[in-house]
């Protein structure tokens, strides 16, 4: 589904990714772990098409297309979804406007008919329930005044509605208490399917206890230093990143 080959990227002259190679097959869940500043979030941002980063070398093939040629909205239309580490507040725009506009934009590109208001509301209410969110969320401005946990739930709510084929979840577990972590984790698990792949970016193992990855990769200094199955995450939790960073 996603194939990253020798990806190099930099921010304001400073190289952050120094040759990433990663293959994500259909239906697989991959976790990228690594210490702060290792380039984890940069990788997620580059994949989603944020233009603060300059790709200097390498290529990314997503479902046969050259991903790096696509605008962020084209990536979304092609079934990609990024859950932001810091979801953006947009004062003045109601959450429900964004949700409906996004759902219909993506449906249109999938050749599906637009959802009628009643159908849309029915669908949203269903998903709200899963995420244990109150309906009042819909009429608040996008992420404005949300707590850290509410913002992350809102991200997963969006993911549930947009039904991506590839979900990039950037530090989705940060800033969550135990209960919220469980809700968010379950929300992700519910999305697991043989047609959908997930890339989890995280610093800690705790989300991986709920969402069991098929593969774990360790990123340090802009390179993948180590890959393995989910036991690698447990090992890291016990032993820390020091050994790997030195490697």
């Amino acid at each position: 589904m996603l194939s990253i080959r020798n990806l190099h990227a930099r921010v304001i002259e400073k190289p952050v990714l120094k040759g990433i190679n990663l293959e994500i097959g259909t239906g697989e869940i991959h976790a990228i772990m690594g210490p702060n500043g290792s380039g984890k979030s940069t990788l997620a941002s580059v994949l989603a098409g944020r233009d603060d980063y300059e790709v200097t070398d390498g290529e990314v093939i997503y479902m046969g297309q050259n991903l790096l040629d696509l605008e962020p909205e084209e990536r979304a239309w092609a079934g990609m979804f990024l859950s932001f580490q810091y979801p953006v507040e947009i004062p003045g725009v109601k959450n429900i406007y964004l949700l409906k506009a996004a759902v219909n934009a993506i449906r249109e590109h999938r050749g599906l008919p637009e959802l009628k208001a009643s159908e849309f509301l029915k669908l949203v209410r269903e998903k709200l329930k899963v995420m244990q969110m109150d309906e009042a969320f819909l009429h608040r401005n996008v992420n404005e005044g949300f707590s850290g946990g509410e913002k992350k739930r809102n991200e997963i709510l969006q993911m549930q509605l947009l039904e991506p084929t590839l979900a990039l979840l950037d530090e989705t577990d940060s800033g969550l208490d135990v209960d919220a972590l469980r809700v968010v984790g379950e929300g992700i698990n519910q999305m697991r399917s043989p047609e959908r792949s997930v890339l989890l970016v995280t610093h800690y193992q705790r989300l991986l206890d709920i969402v069991k990855p098929d593969f774990v990769h360790v990123l340090a200094h802009g390179e993948i230093k180590l890959s393995g199955d989910h036991t690698l995450a447990e090992k890291l939790e016990r032993e820390g990143y020091e050994g790997i960073e030195a490697a």
């Binding site: 098409g49 909205e73 990536r75 979804f81 947009i90 934009a105």
Partner: peptide
Amino acid sequence: ELFYLKSRGLSEADARAFLQYAFAE
């Protein structure tokens, strides 16, 4: 904000309209 809206599938033009509307609203 533009990037966030676009990453959710809104076209550039729609995203811009959204933000202008929000500003005035």
